[in-house]
Design a protein around this nucleic acid. Sequence first.
DNA 1: AATCAATGCAACCGCTTCTTT
DNA 2: AAAAGAAGCGGTTGCATTGAT
Length: 228
Amino acid sequence: MARQPYLKKGTWTSDEDRKLVAYVMRYGIWNWNEMPKFAGLQRSGKSCRLRWMNYLRPDIRRGNFTREEEETIIHLQKKLGNRWSAIAARLPQRTDNDIKNYWNTRLKKRPVISKKNNSVSASETSSSIEENSCDADSSTLLNIPAKVELSEPFAYTTTFSPSGCHQAVEVDNTCSMSEQFVSSESYWGIQSFLEQPLMTQGFDCEAMWHYQHYYDPLDDFWVNPLVL
DNA sequence: AATCAATGCAACCGCTTCTTT
DNA sequence: AAAAGAAGCGGTTGCATTGAT
């Protein structure tokens, strides 16, 4: 009987993140079960998919949930039950796993939800809702610059639109400028991977590289100008 | 400063659903 | 229509971090 190749489990390292992101950005998603070996990862396809979907995708917003998001979750959970993917579909930049975790660790524990204005009373939320200066209101949830923070030193920024087409957007000035940067070290880490010979054929590799940057010599950073 | 408990979240597991042949 | 494989989903676990003593 053929021995199963060793498959790593547990927390992802920055190197693994880098490999997966670079691979997906170059080749796209074609088959999660086959991808890991081409990407040089000793992970199951399932693990790769989960990592990408829940953490590495560029269109994910991380950090504190806004009051509006929180109220949406509460409302939809009441309406749909624990159908986290359905709830996540209404909050396009949040993952089902994030929403599930948020519900299980915070919202579920709340004893009383006020029906008045469909909101939670101040006494119940004062300790749990933190204002986030980068939060967008619900009308601008889409098409805002998204950021993925990987384990140091790898990070990149991009824009995302629900249709899958990249388009110019305004930089949210309320967010710190650092969110527009990726260090030169990280940039070259990605670039060197991308310059390696192709390992598979038949994919539109160039089309995958939407993520463009320019170098700012003053800060020694590669800046994402928010793609065309 | 050290230890323990509580908390939050990333990741795994097993099952279901969808797609392809 | 059936079978097989891939992808998606939700429940759960385990570890890292934080706070309390």
